Simulated scan of single mutants.
Amino acid sequence: MPTNTSKPSFRRILLKLSGEALAGSDEDKKFGIDAKTLDNVCQEIGRVVKSGTQVAVVIGGGNFFRGISASESGIERATADYIGMLATVMNALAVQQGLKQIGVEARVQSAIPISPVSEPYVRLRALKHLNMGRVVIFAAGTGNPYFTTDTAASLRAAEINADILVKATKVDGVYDKDPVHNADAVRYDQVTYDEVLQQRLNVMDATAIALCRDNNMPMRVLSIGEEGSLMRMAAGEPVGTLITSS
């Protein structure tokens, strides 16, 4: 693993990963976990941990199951959401194993108790793991239906007193419109949470945005597929888009 001598600017970050990010960049393959992509993500996290920054992760499950989409197909919403929570546990275990293979200790804490494969979510235990240099991967969202993993990320970031919430996506920041389908889309260097809500920018759901805003939790949106972007962000470089309360 490459060594990075940049001094970290953050003591503790919470990284929000979408499940789709683990499926890889191939548009024809949106299901499951791509081994190379998983390794790249773990390498990115590992570099940040070894630089001295504590890292917690909240991970989605959209590469296996999306609760909202399933509920539109006839599955009861609460049941669909619980299935989606279990999908996040699979992704969390995969990331834990990927980190282990590169020598980084990690613990999975699930909001839904699954004792044979993960710890239950306990805030003080999570903080202890982080202070010991372990990555903590929060799975199963908040443990409640009708709440997204974005909201779980905002909640956990506040609970562990993270310095910043980092949303790692397939695009390199926040745009005024979808950059995939609009060549004239403009990327923001910085924007406020109120502007995100007012302009309905596609960052996170409104509950997650409001939770970050009300707790003065800064967020940076960047591309997880851009090699070194997470490490550069941790070192203080203005990667992607910064979102703040004011």
Rank of each mutant, 00 (worst) to 15 (best):
K29F: 11
K29C: 12
F31W: 04
F31S: 08
G32C: 09
G32A: 10
G32L: 02
I33M: 11
D34L: 02
D34N: 15
A35Q: 13
T37A: 12
T37V: 09
T37I: 03
T37Y: 08
T37F: 02
L38M: 13
D39R: 12
Q43A: 14
G46Y: 13
G46V: 07
R47L: 10
V49N: 12
V49H: 11
V49K: 15
K50N: 15
S51A: 15
G52C: 09
T53L: 03
Q54L: 06
V57R: 05
I59V: 15
I59S: 07
G62H: 05
N63V: 06
F64H: 10
F64G: 04
F65Y: 14
F65K: 03
R66N: 01
R66P: 00
R66K: 03
I68E: 02
S69L: 04
S69H: 02
S71L: 01
S71D: 00
S73L: 11
G74M: 06
E76D: 15
E76M: 00
T79H: 10
A80E: 00
A80T: 01
Y82L: 06
Y82I: 04
G84C: 11
G84T: 11
L86D: 09
A87E: 02
T88M: 05
A92K: 01
A94R: 08
V95S: 04
V95N: 05
Q97F: 12
G98F: 05
L99N: 05
Q101A: 11
Q101R: 09
Q101Y: 06
G103F: 03
G103N: 10
V104C: 11
E105D: 13
R107Y: 13
V108S: 10
V108W: 07
S110I: 02
I114F: 09
S115W: 05
S115N: 09
P116K: 13
R123D: 13
R123K: 15
R123I: 12
R125N: 15
L127C: 13
H129W: 14
L130H: 07
M132H: 15
R134Q: 15
V135H: 08
V135M: 12
V136H: 13
I137V: 09
F138P: 09
A140F: 03
G141N: 03
G141L: 04
G141T: 12
G143W: 04
P145T: 04
T148H: 05
T148C: 01
T148K: 04
D150P: 02
T151E: 05
A152T: 02
A152I: 07
A153G: 12
R156V: 10
E159L: 05
E159H: 09
N161C: 02
A162S: 14
I164N: 01
L165H: 08
V166H: 00
K167H: 05
K167A: 04
A168F: 02
V171D: 05
V171M: 07
G173F: 06
G173K: 00
G173T: 01
